[in-house]
Design a binder for these strands. Sequence first.
DNA 1: AGAAGGACCAGTGGTCCGTA
DNA 2: AGAAGGACCAGTGGTCCGTA
Lengths: 264, 264
Amino acid sequence: DTANAIDALSQEGLSEEPVQQEKEAGGSGGVGTWEVVVAGERKKQQRRKKGKTRMGSADDNMNDDDNEGGDEDDDKGSGERGSERQREHPFIVTEPGEVARGKKNGLDYLFHLYEQCRDFLIQVQNIAKERGEKCPTKVTNQVFRYAKKAGASYINKPKMRHYVHCYALHCLDEEASNALRRAFKERGENVGAWRQACYKPLVAIAARQGWDIDAIFNAHPRLAIWYVPTRLRQLCHSERSNAAAAAAAAASSCISGGADHLPF
Amino acid sequence: DTANAIDALSQEGLSEEPVQQEKEAGGSGGVGTWEVVVAGERKKQQRRKKGKTRMGSADDNMNDDDNEGGDEDDDKGSGERGSERQREHPFIVTEPGEVARGKKNGLDYLFHLYEQCRDFLIQVQNIAKERGEKCPTKVTNQVFRYAKKAGASYINKPKMRHYVHCYALHCLDEEASNALRRAFKERGENVGAWRQACYKPLVAIAARQGWDIDAIFNAHPRLAIWYVPTRLRQLCHSERSNAAAAAAAAASSCISGGADHLPF
DNA sequence: AGAAGGACCAGTGGTCCGTA
DNA sequence: AGAAGGACCAGTGGTCCGTA
């Protein structure tokens, strides 16, 4: 399943750790390998306001003690501290197994991030169980915070939420997902277009299974830990309404004997 | 199950509706009867600050538009508007089937409130499903808000959370729950003492079932909709630790051959 | 232009503590 | 004193929009 994890490597990004750890975890892909990640704390400065690098906040300290002075305005143009804002490379549409070239990341890498989040969730769950605390069943803020603390600074909530339904298609119908990737790569579409196109086959799957997208997510062990995206839920709902209306119209036109006169 | 719902009646409290509706719902106890509750909107004034009765907020308007003037201080002694602050009558320890006398409510009534919350949850779930929205699996703030809007002003979150574990015992071992009620009534104990005493048999149940109090709640259909109380979770955890330590000590003393010398 | 993610916001779970 | 519940608070789910 995660056999070709090496192909999913991020092109070397801003922060060195992820790439290193990817390589270490490459062959096995087991859960235990992520303890390496946990051990290696982050080395980058985590800037809060732009340019205002703050020291002193220990790695285990999650407290948000940023309000000291009181002025949090007109910091425009104070970014002379040298450290430019850095981001992950943008995704491009790649075929299954294809490594992205240049300063880009491929879709195998994207999906691999979801597996990493799952590993982090499992760790958070184990800690919670040991301590007798509430145990999350989903990838929550707590899990994202844990991932960041563990050095996986390239994982963040907006990104993961943005592509959840793409990952869902990958989980639920890998054939269809792969075909879509190939088609969109061939057409030279960008990631946004591919992402949009992932909705339709998912709605079709939901249609076949009684429209209960929550049940579909929950029935799949790797998908069950992700919240159903609002947009996907909405699409399933409106499509179900359309289907129901169409069915009703057909039935009505059957009863009334044909399409040549208005049913009411 | 809810056959003796009439015995669970609240003594006529401040708000007339609950009692009336209890009586109507008395015989059947089905879900549908609560539509009566939904239909009958609340008539009482809902005061925000003390004595400051506000008019105008429509029943469907959940908006909290209370901040108009800006002075929200020194309202001490301004309660001359006639409407005294009103509350539900306090609970007393009653035997199963016993009606509380005087300005008191019995424990059958308390447990009945949990069933009502379940009915409200089911209604909220049905509405959510119809609309294709996220569907709560637990009694959430949204459900409490809905209950209030439906006229059940006597239901509130702090109260329901306070007694959840008492209801849990009632669900999981009604015999034990009934025996405890009889014993505490006979001894003349107050509700607080009875409530405290409900923890112990629950921890014993958890001990018999591998200490997983979440699994125990989730396995019971009427209990699964309630969050496991923090205190109960903590008690189960520390008791498990104690049991494990005791077991380890026993094993150690066995290995070392007896209790006459220190094992290390 | 297309995309990544810091940071905000409304509403949550949890329960304290001013009230009766 | 014992108890009911308004109201607060830290941290959540959700995603916008200033950024690169």
